[in-house]
Computed example of a mutant assay.
Amino acid sequence: MGSGTSTFVIRWINFLTMLIAVAVICFGVWMNTHQDGCRKSLAFPVLGLGGLILLISLIGFMGALKNISILLWIYLVMLCLILVGILVFTVLAFIVTNNGSGHSKAGIRYKEYQLQDYSSWFLKELNNTRNWEQLKTCLVKSEDCNNLSKKYKTLKQYKMAKLTPIEAGCCRPPSECGYPAVNASYYDLSFHPVSSNNDCKLYKNSRAIRCYSCDSCK
């Protein structure tokens, strides 16, 4: 492949990524216009990501269009740095969450998660009151738990369902508590829990409480 063909490919690839970057930036601006604090908190990272993609794409596009070698070198270096960053992030994420793949329980098709399975650094950050309160507010607003009764019409459907980690950890008490399910969104808490797990005491049927403060949710 000749240099002319290479620059042509680089030029058009970066032109397409510039369009994607503009779309990402527009999405970030749209998120920032919402009153919802959860979406607003994600707006700046999205805008930053869009801006970074746009900058790199613009450098690559101009370097290929004008055949400016210094811009092409800058483009390649930035790409390498991003790839290294992604690799480092992936490795760190694997180390932090390696043991948190969930536990299978008899009689249920989904996995339950335990906070102590994760790294001490992750636990420290997650147990930071401010961090968790922000996340909890977003979970309550997401309506994932409140929609369970609509998603699973019968108790049989609910018991046979493969619940998501949020549904399994935040919307219901841990199975070890032994609370009978009345429906997908309501448990009979008049029964004394058969487990000493503190999450059993924290769970409430209230839409705003559920198990959002439970370790299983965190």
Rank of each mutant, 00 (worst) to 15 (best):
M1K: 09
S6R: 13
T7N: 13
F8C: 10
F8L: 10
W12H: 10
N14F: 08
L16F: 15
T17H: 03
M18A: 05
L19M: 13
I20W: 09
V22N: 04
A23R: 08
V24K: 06
C26G: 14
F27A: 15
F27T: 15
M31G: 02
N32G: 02
H34C: 05
G37R: 03
G37Y: 02
C38H: 13
C38K: 03
K40T: 06
S41W: 09
S41R: 12
L42C: 09
F44T: 08
G50N: 04
G50Y: 03
G50S: 08
G51L: 06
L52M: 14
I53C: 08
L54I: 04
L54D: 00
S57P: 03
L58D: 00
L58V: 08
L58Y: 13
G60W: 05
M62R: 05
I68F: 01
L71P: 06
L72M: 10
I74R: 05
I74W: 08
L76T: 15
L76G: 10
M78K: 01
C80V: 14
L81F: 09
I82H: 01
I82V: 13
L83M: 14
I86M: 15
L87N: 01
V88Y: 05
F89C: 12
F89W: 14
T90Q: 06
I95M: 13
V96C: 08
T97P: 07
N99P: 02
G100L: 04
H103S: 11
K105M: 15
K105L: 15
A106C: 01
G107F: 10
G107P: 11
R109M: 13
Y110P: 04
Y110L: 04
Q114C: 06
L115H: 09
S120L: 14
W121K: 10
N127P: 03
N128I: 15
N128W: 12
T129Y: 12
N131H: 15
W132A: 01
L135W: 09
T137P: 00
T137K: 12
V140C: 06
S142M: 08
E143I: 00
C145V: 07
N146F: 10
S149M: 07
K150M: 06
K150V: 08
T154W: 08
T154P: 11
L155V: 14
Y158W: 12
A161P: 02
L163A: 00
P165K: 00
I166A: 06
E167I: 01
G169V: 01
R172P: 07
P173Y: 01
S175A: 11
E176W: 05
G178D: 05
A181G: 03
V182R: 02
N183F: 02
N183H: 09
A184F: 02
A184M: 09
Y186P: 05
Y186G: 01
D188V: 09
D188T: 09
S190F: 09
F191V: 15
F191K: 14
F191L: 13
H192N: 13
P193K: 02
P193F: 09
S195E: 00
D199M: 00
L202S: 06
N205D: 10
S206G: 12
S206E: 15
I209G: 03
R210M: 06
S213C: 11
C214T: 07
D215G: 13
C217N: 01
